[in-house]
Design a protein around this nucleic acid. Structure first.
Lengths: 211, 211
DNA sequence: TATAATAGCGTACACGTGTACGCTTAAATT
DNA sequence: AATTTAAGCGTACACGTGTACGCTATTATA
């Protein structure tokens, strides 16, 4: 079992995955991709597709996993940069925007198929985003000593804002425009952080006075 | 020119529009609808479709206009309720959620096709949302005496949050769950309002001291 | 009243789709 | 060395798609 065969198989499987990702663009969503198109882009006969996935749906779920991986990579990268000091919000947004620039198509998948057509698909995307939100929630709760419910609301709002900005950024070619968007997003996150901190403080006070 | 003919035409045109709207659901986006499906749902022969629209694309733009109308209706309704007193944010969110419950498919169109496949389509949706944002921006600026840039950032963030919540609400069957979502959304908007008010105040102070 | 315009239909076509089936060829197993 | 396994291909099929074309029936115009 030298595995030269399994190795080849993995290789062309990658080919399919990459082919699907490459076909994504502003005008082309995953759900509008056909099995034959993907196979052709990968240089395979349509029927060979089935040796790797039963379905376009299954390929899609694989892509979502890939996207989740990228998202976790994003978090790691941001944490490293934050450890070196600087504004947490600014660093996070800038890291996110960088990753969108280099992995555009992966994010297109998450952003577009979130309210897409297939229910299994939507569920998978939503799960990845929820995971991302929860991580952020934990961080906020610990770092800023927030009420847990407040931390969740803040994390949820922040993720919504950032992902929406990311979606907008994907359709921008001008880099100055992107920078402007980054700046605005950072400010909006600060709004949210400010409001969350205040509510958390108020809740702490009312809890203390009740005792 | 009694117009009985033009009247009939308008009537079946409506039939097509309604047919398209009725076919929208969690599993069915507009871009996945075929001309033949819509025609069949309307009780027409496929080729009769062309007597009213050149394209599915053109039908789509008509639907977006319809959605814009609904959006403006929302604003009017909210303003009326606000005039009677109460929390502006709470009333706005609740009005929005009501309209989503009664006009689900119209909103599905806006929320899903925002990053959809056709560029003319995306542009139209984005335009409607921008118009909505601008209206809110004017209101905020005037009612809360905000810096204009700050007002825009607040309006933009608020619309993002509310539309995202609306999108989530569309996939909920449980009404208690929806209520919980409303509550959370209201709180998130308050975060943003708080942060915006503070920044606006700070800017005013720095402007005054500079003079 | 005679003529023109037009909403709606049925037929027909070329095209892209998913996928069933059997074959080949090379790796894996015995 | 003989046999089994399986990746990839080509052919073939039924189906749904958009739409061109000509016809009919009814309303609008002259």
């Amino acid at each position: 079992m030298s595995g030269v065969r399994a190795q080849q198989k993995e290789k062309t499987r990658r080919l399919l995955v990459e082919a699907a990702l490459n076909q994504l663009s502003a005008e082309r969503s995953f759900s509008s991709l056909s099995l034959r198109e993907v196979a052709k882009e990968a240089g395979l006969a349509p029927t060979s597709f089935y040796r790797h996935f039963t379905d376009m749906n299954e390929l899609g779920l694989t892509l979502v996993d890939e996207a989740g991986l990228t998202l976790r990579q994003l978090m790691r990268q941001a944490r490293q940069r934050i450890a070196k000091g600087g504004s947490v919000i600014q660093i996070s947004v800038e890291t996110f925007m960088e990753l969108i620039e280099s992995n555009g198509n992966v994010f297109r998948l998450l952003l577009r198929e979130r309210s897409g057509t297939s229910s299994a698909f939507r569920a998978a995307v939503i799960r990845e985003i929820r995971y991302f939100t929860m991580e952020l929630c934990d961080y906020l709760q610990q770092a800023n000593d927030l009420d847990s419910e407040v931390a969740y609301m803040q994390a949820n709002a922040a993720v919504t804002i950032v992902f929406s900005a990311g979606s907008d950024a994907l359709d921008m070619e001008d880099s100055a425009e992107r920078q402007q968007l980054s700046k605005q997003t950072i400010q909006q996150l600060r709004f949210i952080a400010r409001g969350a901190a205040e509510l958390s403080d108020r809740r702490k006070l009312s809890r203390r006075s009740r005792k």
